[in-house]
Each structure stands twice: as structure tokens, then as C-alpha cells.
Design a protein around this nucleic acid. Structure first.
Lengths: 206, 206
DNA sequence: CCATAACGAAACGATACGTTTCATTCAAGT
DNA sequence: ACTTGAATGAAACGTATCGTTTCGTTATGG
């Protein structure tokens, strides 16, 4: 007698994790984030929506932050580092792609939530720091290539240069201003690369 | 018979706001933020610590975010825009002062919480955007002065230039990496101003 | 003098927390 | 083939905070 079960109830598949439950939980979590934001993102709500038991979630994710990070990693897809032959265009392509990615997918919202959560959760903070360091090191290759080409001087710090632009992107994401004018941005990067001094006289003071 | 009152209970002073309660609430809120961070910052906890009634808080602050913003504004003190005569040194002084301020006072922690709260609360988000626009416009004067001096070309966008550096500072604050090497930072700003191209050939295109 | 509003305390129903209990399902080890 | 044990969803647990309401009290302002 399978008396007390509703027909479509997801159940155990033995002494192992049920991938269907895992998927349902991650999907429900992503949907809730998209529809109600971080404020509606509770374990209780995710369990309800996924038709999963709360113990199932707590068994596989230690906290709300852990689940959030998993959702984020699911969304994430590593974009290749641009290589146009010019550092100016590479940097422009990098920032533009980042803004487009954040604007056109759910990744932007989720990343905002991860940053927010990191301000009060140590685990998320550590994970965010690690992730950021990886991405910066990866993207800095763009600058290192330019150094090898002799396009820029050897004393330029690749990581710090990327961090400067990435930080700008962060602040735009976090204040909901992803509508950057491409021309303005291109000009800024050009000036950052070519320098801002007027004329070819880098010694005029006072 | 003042029977049910404990001796030091703060009470009404008539049909007007009690400044003592207001101060006690703001002080308690700031103390809680300093001691337990944003996670311990609840209206309930603030009321307990301030020996205030929850309705008193809700009467004067519409939400947790509103109270948080008030605490933040209390902490805030406007720093003068540096004016050393050189944009490079001005920018370095600006960023250094910002990092020192965030590191040495409670302002850094509170600002982090405001940014985090802004990711799920529309009121805080709007307030943050307004505040940031004000500060950027104010600091951009530093760049405008340099333009007037002829130190940099006229097509440099003052606000965007400040935003670039401020965004970098934000990302460092939000990832708990306020320990910037001054020399490294000074070099970065110098390169940003002077340009990164090797040689004195500012016209090589395509 | 009295209507009105602010005060702190207490309790409200609602919601989410993290945990436990339960009957059930099935993989893995004897 | 049989038993052991872990995973599953549902339900209920006690705890905590939410935002609100009720209450007795205080004292301003009309």
C-alpha cells in the first residue's frame, strides 16, 4: 500500500544523493532570487518551491550562504580573455563583456547578492575573495601580454590595473548603473593607457 | 502612585519627540554594529539595548535600513578635497584618506553594511546612489582644477576619473583588503595620469 | 483644562530558523 | 536473498525576530 504518498512526490533513491532533488533545489533557489531577490531567499521558501524537505537542504548545504554560492557557480561561465592585439581594445572588450554579462543574464543579480552576503557571512567573504583573486589573475594575462609585446612599460602592475577597472565595474553593478556609454568608457580606458597629460611635455609643473 | 515604573525608565516628555530616546537609539545601533556587525543589527536588539520600546523606533524610522542610514550619516564627516597643486598627489591623497578613514573609524564597517543593505532595499539603494553622486561630484573638483591649470587635457571626464578610483576603493573595502601598499598605489595613479605607453609616442594608432 | 501624542512594556499573530521524528525507498554489504 | 543504513519529503517541534496592537503613564500645546 503506497497510501500516504501523493503521486508525483520525489523520494529517496537509496543511500545516495538524489540528483533530481539537487537540481530542483538549485532551480527553485535561482527562480526565487530572480523573482523576489535576496530578501525572499530563505531555506524555507526554497524547500517549499522545490517540494523538498528542509532536512534535505540542510544535509547538503550548510547555510543559506552556501546554497547561494552554489547557485552563483551554476550561473557562472568563464568568458575567454579577449586578445585583439591592443591592450586598449582588450581592456575595453573585457569591461564591456562584463557589463553585458551582468545585464543580460541573472549573473549580475546573483553576484550582487553574493557580495552583499559576504558583508555579514565569513564563509561567503572568503569564497568571494578567492573567486575575485582568480578572476583578476586570469584577466591580468591581458596586461602581461601587452608588456611582453612592449606595448606598455614593464613596471605596470597587471593585477592592480585589472583591479582598477573591475572595481569600477563593481561599483556600477552595486549601484544599479550598468548603462555605461561605450564611447565614454572607451575614451576613459584610452586615457588611462595613453596618459592624461596634455601635450608631449611630461615635466611642466607649477 | 508611580508603582509599575523602575527608577531610571525613560518616559514621554509630552506630545513631542524625546531627544534622549533618539540619542539612546542611535547610540545603541552604532554600538551593536561595531560589536556584532550587520547580522546582529535588528530593531529588536536595538530596542533592548537602548531600553526603548519598539513602537518608538518604528514611529521615527520606517525600517531597519532607515535607521542604518541615520547611523551612517551620524558617523560621516566630510573630508576636504585635497589641493596639493598636482593632480597626481591630489588623487593619491584622496584615495589614501579614504582608506585611512574606513580603516581607522567605524565608517568603513557601516558603509559596507549600507552597500549590502542597498542590494535588497530600494530606499537604501536610492540613498546610496544619491550619496555617491554627491561625493563624486565634489571630489571631481580636484580633476576640474587640474584641467583649468592645463595639467591634463580638457577631454578628461572628471566624474568618471574619480569613479574609477572610488570603485577600486569600494572593491577593496567590500573584500576586506584595505591594506594597500602606498607606494604601489602611488605608482598606479602616476601611471594612470602619465600614461602607460612605453616611449614618448602618444599617437600610434591601429 | 483637556485632547492629543509620545513613551516603555508586554503581548499579539506571522514567519523563518535549525532540528527531530516518521514512514518510505533503495543501494551496498554480507 | 537478506539486512543494514542512508537519503527522501512531510510534519511538527521550540526558539527568535518580525511589525503591530494594547496598555498605563507622562506632559506638551491648544
Amino acid at each position: 500500500m503506497t497510501s500516504t504518498l501523493t503521486a508525483d512526490r520525489r523520494t529517496s533513491i537509496g543511500a545516495q544523493r538524489n540528483p533530481a532533488s539537487q537540481e530542483a533545489i538549485l532551480k527553485a533557489a535561482a527562480d526565487i532570487l530572480r523573482e523576489t531577490g535576496l530578501s525572499g531567499f530563505s531555506i524555507e521558501a526554497v524547500a517549499r518551491r522545490a517540494h523538498a524537505g528542509k532536512p534535505t537542504i540542510y544535509r547538503w548545504w550548510s547555510s543559506r550562504a552556501a546554497l547561494l554560492l552554489d547557485v552563483y557557480h551554476d550561473q557562472k561561465q568563464v568568458e575567454p580573455v579577449p586578445d585583439t592585439g591592443s591592450i586598449e581594445n582588450d581592456l575595453f572588450a573585457f569591461v564591456t563583456a562584463l557589463f553585458d554579462y551582468w545585464r543580460d543574464s541573472e549573473a549580475g543579480s546573483i553576484f550582487r547578492f553574493v557580495i552583499a552576503e559576504a558583508q555579514s557571512d565569513a564563509t561567503t567573504s572568503a569564497a568571494l575573495r578567492t573567486y575575485m583573486a582568480e578572476r583578476i589573475d586570469q584577466t591580468a594575462e591581458l596586461v602581461r601580454r601587452a608588456t611582453r609585446r612592449g606595448e606598455i612599460t614593464a613596471d605596470v602592475d597587471p593585477e592592480l590595473t585589472i583591479e582598477l577597472l573591475a572595481g569600477f565595474a563593481w561599483s556600477r553593478l552595486l549601484t544599479g548603473r550598468l548603462d555605461v556609454d561605450p564611447e565614454q568608457l572607451h575614451k576613459l580606458i584610452g586615457q588611462m593607457i595613453r596618459g592624461m597629460r596634455s601635450g608631449g611635455d611630461p615635466g611642466a609643473e607649477q
